[in-house]
């Protein structure tokens, strides 16, 4: 099964969520900032590449985890993906779209997108990461829900 986590940029909130899913980050405590910054592809934002599914890895059950950026179109883009896959008659159980949009902290949007656009990349990264450590427990909760759901669906 393919699991797509999506958020504003695809390289902040959803990337950390997929890292939690894959076990790259701990579930029981908030990791230090350096550990988040050293994740592969973290904060590598290129405007003409937003939207390309970012491959994160395969989890223990063989699910393939991807992270996608949808900018502020949190309804239109997932709907378009869903309807495209319906056109090609790909069954619903082969993929899952998980929104992390509601957990994107204000500071991550500010730091990850706007400060970076203004040319303050380093400041933006630390502001964005600060925000993520604050919502970290909620992201762990989300991953737990998704994993439980997958387990119930499997048999």
């Amino acid at each position: 099964m393919y699991i797509f986590y999506y958020c504003l940029t695809g390289v902040h909130t959803s990337l950390v969520t997929s890292a939690i899913h894959l076990g790259l980050l701990p579930e029981d405590r908030v990791p230090p900032v350096e550990k988040i910054i050293n994740l592969p592809n973290y904060d590598r934002l290129a405007y003409n590449e937003i939207g390309q599914p970012c491959w994160m890895g395969t989890d223990n059950e063989g699910n393939k985890i991807f992270s996608i950026g949808v900018l502020s179109e949190k309804e239109v883009v997932p709907k378009a993906i869903q309807s495209l896959l319906d056109l090609y008659q790909i069954p619903q159980y082969q993929y899952r779209l998980v929104s992390t949009m509601e957990y994107v902290p204000y500071s991550t949007a500010l730091g990850g997108v706007y400060l970076k656009r203004m040319g303050a990349g380093n400041l933006g990264r630390s502001v964005a990461t600060k925000g993520l450590t604050r919502v970290y427990p909620k992201l762990v909760e989300l991953v737990r829900e998704v994993k439980d759901d997958l387990k119930n669906q499997a048999p």
């Binding site: 393919y2 939207g51 599914p53 378009a80 090609y88 993929y95």
Partner: peptide, 26 residues
């Protein structure tokens, strides 16, 4: 032939749809 309304996400939608489709062998 299909039509799609996608707001102001021209570049994004041209990245995301072919990108996801390629994963499923399209």
């Amino acid at each position: 032939i299909y039509v799609l309304g996608r707001h102001n996400t021209a570049k994004l939608i041209e990245n995301v749809l072919p990108g996801v489709a390629a994963l499923f062998g399209i």
